[in-house]
C-alpha cells in the first residue's frame, strides 16, 4: 500500500510512460517501486524509479511484481483531480491493483493485473563523451520547433554548445544553447558528440516535462541518447537508439 501526495503529478508519470509502452511490470520492495521495459519495436527503453521516500506512506511485505495495462491505468489516472491523494493498494487475493483517489471523498478503481513478469533488461553502462543539463521546457520547445520541419532531429555538442537541429526538404531549424543561455545549466564534453533521433519518440519522452524541470542528456556520436528527469517524485530515465546514415 503506497500513498502519493499528488495524484495529478503522478498522472504525468503514467501519461509519459504510456506514450512509449503498452504494459509494464512494477517491482515493489522495501526500497520503493521500480520498472524497466523496452518499447515493442526495441528502439526505446524506459526506466522508472520511485524511491520509498517519495511516498507519504509506504507499506510492503517482501517483494511484489505488479503487471499493469498502461492504457487502462492512464485512463484511470486521467480522472485525478488537483487535490487528490493517490493510494495504490495491491489486492493479491483478487489479483487487482486498487487505485484510490482520496480528497473530500474516496473514489476507488480496481485495475485487473496482467500476468507479465519484470524484464531482465539492465541499463547498459555506456560511457558518454558529453553530458548536458538543460531546462526541460526549453528542450521540449526546441523539439516542437524541429517537429515543424522534419521527423528526426540531430542533437549535437560542440565547442561547449548544445545544438538541436534538423533539415527538411525545403526548410531548416536549429536551436543553440551556449554558456550565455539561461536555459543551459551545465555542459561537460570531451570532444564532439552528434547523433540523430526520431522526433516522435523524443516528444513522447518529454511529454511530462513542464517549466522548472531540468533534464540531463547523455550524448555521443551515433550512440543511444540517455535522457533523465524527475517528475512527481519519480525518476525517469529513457534510452533512445539513434538513426544512422
Amino acid at each position: 500500500r503506497a500513498t502519493l501526495e499528488s495524484a495529478k503529478e503522478f498522472k504525468k508519470v503514467v501519461d509519459t510512460v504510456a506514450q512509449i509502452l503498452d504494459e509494464i511490470c512494477l517491482i515493489a520492495n522495501e526500497d520503493g517501486i521500480t520498472a524497466r521495459a523496452m518499447d515493442p519495436s526495441h528502439v526505446a527503453l524506459v526506466s522508472l524509479e520511485i524511491p520509498r521516500l517519495s511516498f507519504e506512506d509506504y507499506e510492503i511485505e517482501g517483494e511484489k511484481e505488479i503487471g499493469i495495462d498502461l492504457e487502462a491505468f492512464k485512463k484511470i489516472m486521467n480522472r485525478a483531480k488537483s487535490k487528490d491523494k493517490l493510494i495504490l493498494e495491491l489486492d493479491e487475493e483478487k489479483n487487482k491493483l486498487n487505485v484510490i483517489f482520496e480528497n473530500s471523498g474516496r473514489r476507488k478503481f480496481s485495475l485487473a493485473l496482467l500476468d507479465i513478469s519484470a524484464s531482465e533488461i539492465k541499463m547498459p553502462e555506456i560511457e558518454y563523451p558529453a553530458v548536458v543539463m538543460l531546462k526541460g521546457d526549453a528542450f521540449k520547445e526546441a523539439l516542437k520547433d524541429a517537429d515543424l520541419i522534419s521527423d528526426y532531429v540531430i542533437l549535437k555538442v560542440e565547442d561547449n554548445k548544445f545544438i538541436v537541429e534538423t533539415k527538411g526538404e525545403l526548410n531548416d531549424f536549429s536551436a543553440e544553447f551556449d554558456e550565455d543561455s539561461s536555459a543551459l545549466i551545465s555542459i561537460e564534453s570531451q570532444g564532439h558528440a552528434k547523433s540523430a533521433f526520431n522526433l516522435e519518440y523524443l516528444l513522447d519522452m518529454v511529454k511530462g516535462i513542464k517549466a522548472g524541470d531540468i533534464v540531463k542528456l547523455y550524448l555521443g556520436t551515433d550512440m543511444p541518447l540517455k535522457l533523465e528527469y524527475s517528475l512527481g517524485g519519480a525518476n525517469l530515465t529513457f534510452l533512445l537508439a539513434p538513426r544512422i546514415e
Binding site: P124, I126, A196
Partner: peptide, 14 residues
C-alpha cells in the same frame, strides 16, 4: 536518408 537502429544492437556491443 538515415536508418533507425534498435537498442538491442547496442546492448550486444556494450
Amino acid at each position: 536518408k538515415n536508418k533507425q537502429i534498435k537498442l538491442i544492437d547496442f546492448f550486444n556491443n556494450y
